[in-house]
């Protein structure tokens, strides 16, 4: 225990003097400022539709002016001339619809996705059906599959889980690699090898110190942006296991390299893999089954549940899964370190 305590003190001092703690605090402030003051609570995704009625009896304009746009998925505004329609389109994010007696012309910006255009077409069809008296619904109602998640996170808070996974945990991954390279560069491992320390102590100390920085950063960000009303026990458990897992992976991979420049390719590849589940996070319809096996996938969604104060049934099963993954990685780190860092050189 005395030896482990000594190693922890060494690694803490090294983290402090290598400015890891300072970097962590600066990053915490930057991310808190980003979430609280830079990212908007709501993204302006509202689409304006400007209508020009060139039909002979201007029935459409008359109808729309009378009905207003209440309940419509698209904000509708009737214009008086093509010049007005063009002018409004150039100033705002929207599309134009010109009704003529025999056709409908849609004027688009050019970057609308297919879903938006289909929505417009459906709205126009509905409008024409209403005008002809074929179909006259009296109201619209929206229902969702999972009522629990209806309480939508503001956009800035919605960004916290990917920020934690991509910045906070990766920081621990990079810091532990930097520490290993420092030890290799300074020949410290050779000094350890002629002392009575064990590999387990060396690994534990590095993983604990670097994970602590990630955990502290994750706690500061959520406390500064979400507040104290969430379940911090759940948050702490998930964040701690995730930070330990990712730092251990950092140690597992970095021990085979000698410098950060050699390790850069691994770092980029690892970052990309960890970031992949963010695609599903932002675009739930894009769900590749493989993503679910990347640890960052469940971590991101669970952190989202926690900061949304949604009671998740999966918190403990995910914790168990992370603990098992962590144990597996630590066993691998132990055996690879025994050979790569502490192993006695044999025939090359």
């Amino acid at each position: 225990m005395k030896k482990l305590w000594t190693l922890l003190k060494i690694d803490y001092t090294m983290a402090l003097r290598s400015k890891f703690i300072l970097i962590t605090l600066i990053l915490a402030i930057l991310l808190a400022v980003l979430v609280n003051f830079v990212l908007p609570e709501k993204l302006n995704t509202e689409m304006n539709t400007y209508i020009l009625d060139r039909t002979s009896n201007t029935r459409i304009a008359t109808f729309l002016n009378a009905a207003g746009d209440e309940g419509s998925a698209i904000k509708i505004e009737v214009t008086k001339s093509e010049e007005e329609l063009t002018s409004k389109l150039t100033k705002s994010n929207g599309a134009g619809v010109i009704f003529e007696d025999d056709k409908v012309i849609i004027v688009k910006q050019g970057y609308e996705d297919e879903a938006t255009l289909n929505l417009m077409t459906a709205t126009i069809n509905l409008l024409t059906k209403k005008l002809s008296g074929v179909y006259t619904p009296t109201s619209f109602k929206y229902t969702v599959l999972e009522p629990q998640s209806t309480e939508k996170l503001p956009f800035n808070k919605f960004m916290i889980p990917p920020l934690i996974v991509l910045d906070v945990f990766l920081l621990g991954f990079m810091f532990i690699a930097a520490m290993i390279f420092q030890d290799k560069k300074e020949g410290i491992i050779k000094a350890y090898r002629i002392s009575p320390i064990n590999i387990f102590g060396y690994i534990t100390s590095k993983v604990v110190i670097n994970s602590s920085l990630s955990i502290a950063l994750a706690l500061i960000i959520v406390a500064a942006t979400v507040g104290f009303h969430i379940n911090y026990l759940h948050y702490f458990v998930i964040v701690t296991l995730s930070a330990l897992l990712i730092s251990s992976l950092g140690m597992l991979l970095s021990q085979f390299f000698n410098s950060l420049s050699e390790f850069m390719y691994v770092l980029i590849a690892f970052s990309l893999i960890i970031a992949l589940p963010a695609i599903s996070y932002f675009q739930p319809s894009f769900s590749v089954p493989f993503f679910k096996y990347i640890p960052s996938y469940p971590i991101m969604f669970e952190i989202k549940n926690i900061i949304s104060s949604v009671q998740s049934k999966e918190i403990w099963s995910l914790s168990l899964l992370l603990a098992v993954e962590l144990a597996g990685v630590l066993v691998l780190v132990y055996f690879t370190s025994k050979r790569a860092l502490f192993g006695r050189r044999q025939l090359s």
Binding site: K3, K9, T13, M14, E186, G187, I188, A191
Partner: peptide, 22 residues
């Protein structure tokens, strides 16, 4: 070839190394 923690002082290098012995 000297192998010390560059970011630790001479005293700290020796003091911490001492902590590794039983």
């Amino acid at each position: 070839f000297p192998n010390l923690y560059g970011k630790l002082t001479g005293y700290e290098n020796l003091k911490y190394f001492a902590g590794l012995f039983s």
